[in-house]
Write a protein that binds this DNA or RNA. Structure first.
Lengths: 333, 333
DNA sequence: TTGAAAGCGCTAACAT
DNA sequence: ATGTTAGCGCTTTCAA
């Protein structure tokens, strides 16, 4: 492959200085029309592509954002990644993807690499958020924003779904259908949203019996196991921590010969794509992934421009109830 | 934020030249131990991180690979992305993610951006591959490798699952169970693997009736619709283009009151995570995503080092039959 | 063993 | 309206 044309090559061919080429191509400053045309022609003929590297070195910004994801295995995250990529792209930013795994050490290493690559900012999308985790994120030499998890008190800006509100909507939906004894399959406390979602369920249950709470693991297996504990507990509906949990619960119930929603209602959280494909299709709370991505990117860019309404409260986005077929009125007594 | 320390700052603090700092930190060349220590200390004290940008400009390589994905909506791709990211990371490369969408125009634009960012090479992961598509990929000024789709005759290196072989394994599994009349739900021909998978099914059916082939769309909806056409066709088993298709088929069959696998067997392809969660859990052909990622990265790096065993045949990787519960013997006559 | 200096390809003052 | 020039932060000859 012949070496790529540089700005000097274009300048020479067009018979102008590199400065002029730069001006014409970046549309900044002015140039007489004939000059402009010559430059454009030369650039085209040489198939010239400006070097983002050289530009980044000069401008001291790469127009690149780091995206650190810990759990691409959860089908919710690809949606978020996709949304973030689109939002960034629209604003002229590229995304360097880092698959953190769940090991903070490894994650620290990834962070370092992102910093060496001189990303302008970093988005961390992860459901789990421990204190240790937050501690080293705070030390980042680059602006960070968290998506869908908050590092309480760390001052790290975050944008998240209104988890508590969403869970309340879920439980309220069940109550509205006539359910009074409600079960909740929760997630371990390192899931940043676990406590809020449980609280939300309780919010909807004022004046009603407390929910029967059992612990899952945020995945299908945990949901399946936890659901066993709920069978015969007298609950007529289960609000699950997330869709994966609900899918597990659905499986257990089916195997136990328990009909959903005739005998028991199940509601999830997230609205991952496959929620529509379960049997019965899952009623759930949709997280606004598109908005989440857009806000995360915008907040980060704000921070870069110093116009940071920084720290402050996490920005909360409203979720939405999606009624499908896994919920219905409780069975008659 | 105070400006990041540069190599000059470190040099000054350690009382040496920048050249020495560079040598010590990149471990190239030699330095007396005391010098080394002083440099290391200075770097640590200043929390120095070399600028990958400046380095890239000098070395003319970014140690970054572009990853162009067209269909993050298909749950198979996150697995591939994850595998590629890990493989690249292990070899010291970062990944710039581009979410192509399915529009070749848009994709071209993404490609351009990757080139401007001076990625060292590009991996394209996409199930669809039209002639037009291949045509512009061939013009890329940067080495490309295709994952799981081949651009026949384009000479673009590719690594893919042995689709034909996999489909044959699927159909052979059904035949082995005693099935003789087999249905196949295919995908539109712009899916690079569609033809091969159909051929594979036929391969396993020598001496048996031809398969009954109906067309899906590679997604759940298409699978569901296509399966309707198969009910009452006399087939006792369905080999599906992929898992999403199979999930759609499962849904249709359940609604039609047709028991799987007692009355009809269903087998998928891909082994996406949720294949294990369907009801019944889906028997399928597992694509070796980890290997796929590793090979793709390695092939690309080979091309970068000129040691390209280039063009040549697409490298084919062996899939694996995963038997779950959606397949069984045909019903007695 | 270490240092001086010349770029890598661009942009942005500053001149003209 | 256009050109000259000084870097951005590194690596890498080449000299000492």
């Amino acid at each position: 492959m012949p070496d790529r044309a540089t700005i000097a090559d274009v300048a020479e061919r067009a018979g102008v200085s590199t400065a002029t080429v730069s001006r014409v191509l970046s549309g900044v400053g002015v140039a007489r029309e004939p000059t402009r045309q010559r430059v454009l022609a030369a650039a085209r003929e040489l198939d010239y592509r400006p070097s983002g590297i050289a530009r980044a070195l000069k401008r001291r910004e790469t127009r690149t954002l780091g995206l650190l994801v810990t759990d691409l295995g959860n089908p919710f995250y690809p949606q978020v990644v996709s949304a973030i990529e689109s939002a960034a792209h629209e604003r002229g930013y590229g995304i360097v993807l880092s698959n953190g795994g769940d090991d903070p050490e490894r994650e620290l290493e990834h962070l370092d690499l992102l910093v060496e690559r001189r990303v302008d900012g970093i988005i961390v999308a992860s459901s789990r958020m421990t204190g240790r985790h937050a501690a080293f994120l705070r030390r980042s030499p680059v602006p960070i924003v968290l998506v869908n998890s908050t590092a309480a008190g760390s001052g790290i800006p975050a944008v998240a779904t209104a988890h508590r509100r969403g869970a309340e909507m879920a439980a309220a939906h069940l109550v509205g259908l006539g359910h009074r004894r409600i079960g909740h399959i929760g997630a371990p406390s390192e899931h940043a949203a676990a406590a809020q979602r449980e609280a939300g369920v309780r919010d909807a249950l004022v004046g009603l019996p407390d929910p029967v709470v059992v612990q899952g693991d945020g995945h299908v297996e945990g949901g399946a196991r936890a659901a066993e504990g709920l069978i015969g507990s007298g609950v007529t509906a289960i609000a699950c921590y997330n869709d994966l949990t609900a899918i597990g619960a659905l499986r257990t119930l089916r195997r136990a010969g328990c009909h959903v929603p005739q005998q028991l209602s199940v509601i999830g959280f997230d609205d991952i794509e496959m929620a529509a494909w379960t049997d019965p299709p899952l009623t759930t709370i949709r997280q606004p992934t598109g908005e989440l991505g857009r806000w995360a990117v915008d907040r980060l860019l704000d921070a870069l421009n110093g116009s940071g309404s920084n720290g402050a409260e996490p920005r909360e986005l409203e979720p939405e109830l999606v009624v499908r077929a896994s919920t219905g009125p409780p069975p008659p007594e």
